[in-house]
């Protein structure tokens, strides 16, 4: 179902832990990287691959916010709005991004390029406000550098 490299990586993970089931989170990350999101058929496949039931897998997926059950934008802009970021102006950044992209939290631009997500503390409170675009951190945000960051994404 996945690329050869991904399948090999899954094999490696399943052999790595004292109990196979422990590998479920890293395996799901691989699946999500391959497919962009975790559809039912992907979960069925992961379950079979791990010797689990579909239910075992789907209940894990639904617990964790970093797994997506629906397609999302190419770039997931994850903006922290927790207190340290808020004190340093994250709400202004939020308004700026919302105006710039014409979407609010939980929405994706019609061209499928950006999704805007409100996230909890990312551990960058000393360099607030912060956002993650997919897995990359961007700190000390201002409306100006947010423009730069978003405009320069490939």
């Amino acid at each position: 179902m996945f690329s050869q490299q991904a399948e090999r990586e899954i094999d490696r993970l399943l052999a790595r832990y004292p109990r196979k089931r422990s590998a479920i989170i890293p395996v799901l990350f691989i699946a999500q990287k391959e497919r962009g999101y975790l559809s039912d058929d992907v979960l069925e496949y992961v379950a079979k691959r791990m010797g689990l039931t579909y239910l075992d897998v789907v209940t894990v997926v639904s617990f964790y916010t970093m797994f997506y059950r629906r397609p999302i934008g190419k770039y997931n802009i994850q903006l922290c709005n927790n207190v340290s970021c808020m004190l340093c102006g994250s709400e202004k950044i939020q308004e700026h991004i919302e105006r710039k992209l014409g979407i609010t939290f939980g929405q994706t631009t019609p061209d499928g390029r950006f999704t805007l997500t409100e996230v909890q503390c990312l551990g960058s409170c000393g360099t607030a406000p912060v956002m993650q675009v997919n897995f990359d951190y961007y700190e000390n945000l201002t409306p100006e550098n947010v423009d730069q960051i978003l405009d320069s994404l490939p």
């Binding site: 109990r19 089931r21 422990s22 989170i25 890293p26 894990v60 617990f63 970093m66 797994f67």
Partner: peptide, 27 residues
């Protein structure tokens, strides 16, 4: 040493929830 990722759940910082998560379950 195995480095194991969480997937976005504050509660998994609570040590027994962490263990559940590490066992491949809900935290």
């Amino acid at each position: 040493i195995i480095v194991h990722p969480g997937a976005g759940a504050y509660i998994c910082g609570e040590e027994t929830a962490l263990l559940e998560s590490l066992e491949g379950k809900r935290g």
